[in-house]
Amino acid sequence: MTHTIDVPTDAGPGRLVIDAPRTPDAVLLLGHGAGGGIDQFNLRALAERLPERGIAVVRFEQPWLVAGRKVAGAPRTLDAGWRAALDATARRWRGLPLVVGGRSAGARVACRCAAEPAAGVIALAFPLHPPGKPEKSRRDELAGVELPALVIQGEKDPFGTARELSETVQDNAGTRTLVEIPAAGHSLQPGRRSDPTGAARTIVDAAAGFVASLHR
């Protein structure tokens, strides 16, 4: 059953949307992108399927989205909202393993703010660079993560393909895992001729395995 909790932040109220089993073994906190909310394909798949594997999924709606604005705030504002969400999540499930992550801009926020009490980071469709502008790389945000990290990337993502990200992941062998979604772009959802259900299964299985690896 889904329920929500409002979270006060310096940028206004944010919102935690929670899908959790009765007695979770771990918690996954996820942020959304700048072009969509918490019901994006991959975030929804995780919220629907991970609780049955014992993982509580908490999707954080940034204050700009809660307020009904169409444009995301500045990075420092997003980071401040995220830290408030992280604190609230850690308090609610004190003592449980906590993994953080997000998709697109939400992945960038999770990477920039990766620190205890988080045990790992899941980056979904990390936007390595703006489309067509590889010289404007955000590699340092991902490379700077000192926690174990799982990166799930589309084969054809215009913001950075899995192949483009592989070098950054290989630089941190043993602490980074890269999973490619064949035929997928930035949404991580393959086209109509592909198998979106299979993509969801790949994302969920990879995330569940990663979370489990951090609290065995």
Score class of each variant (00 low, 15 high):
residue 1 M to L: 02
residue 2 T to M: 15
residue 2 T to W: 13
residue 3 H to P: 15
residue 6 D to V: 04
residue 10 D to Q: 10
residue 13 P to Y: 08
residue 18 I to E: 03
residue 18 I to G: 01
residue 20 A to S: 15
residue 21 P to H: 13
residue 29 L to R: 04
residue 31 G to W: 03
residue 31 G to Y: 08
residue 33 G to Q: 06
residue 43 L to T: 06
residue 44 R to S: 02
residue 47 A to C: 11
residue 50 L to S: 01
residue 52 E to Y: 09
residue 52 E to N: 12
residue 54 G to F: 02
residue 55 I to R: 00
residue 55 I to H: 02
residue 56 A to G: 00
residue 58 V to T: 13
residue 60 F to T: 10
residue 66 V to R: 05
residue 66 V to E: 10
residue 66 V to I: 09
residue 69 R to D: 11
residue 71 V to Q: 13
residue 71 V to F: 06
residue 73 G to V: 06
residue 74 A to S: 14
residue 78 L to Y: 14
residue 78 L to N: 14
residue 78 L to R: 14
residue 82 W to R: 13
residue 83 R to V: 12
residue 89 T to F: 10
residue 90 A to D: 13
residue 99 V to S: 11
residue 103 R to K: 03
residue 105 A to T: 09
residue 116 E to W: 13
residue 117 P to K: 12
residue 118 A to K: 15
residue 118 A to S: 13
residue 119 A to S: 10
residue 123 A to P: 06
residue 124 L to E: 14
residue 125 A to W: 11
residue 128 L to V: 02
residue 132 G to C: 05
residue 141 E to M: 13
residue 142 L to D: 09
residue 144 G to V: 13
residue 151 V to W: 00
residue 159 F to Q: 11
residue 162 A to S: 08
residue 164 E to P: 02
residue 165 L to R: 09
residue 167 E to G: 07
residue 169 V to E: 11
residue 169 V to P: 04
residue 170 Q to T: 07
residue 170 Q to W: 06
residue 173 A to K: 10
residue 175 T to P: 15
residue 178 L to W: 03
residue 181 I to D: 05
residue 186 H to Q: 01
residue 191 G to I: 13
residue 196 P to L: 01
residue 199 A to W: 08
residue 201 R to K: 12
residue 201 R to E: 10
residue 204 V to A: 05
residue 206 A to K: 10
residue 209 G to W: 02
residue 211 V to K: 01
residue 216 R to H: 05
residue 216 R to I: 04
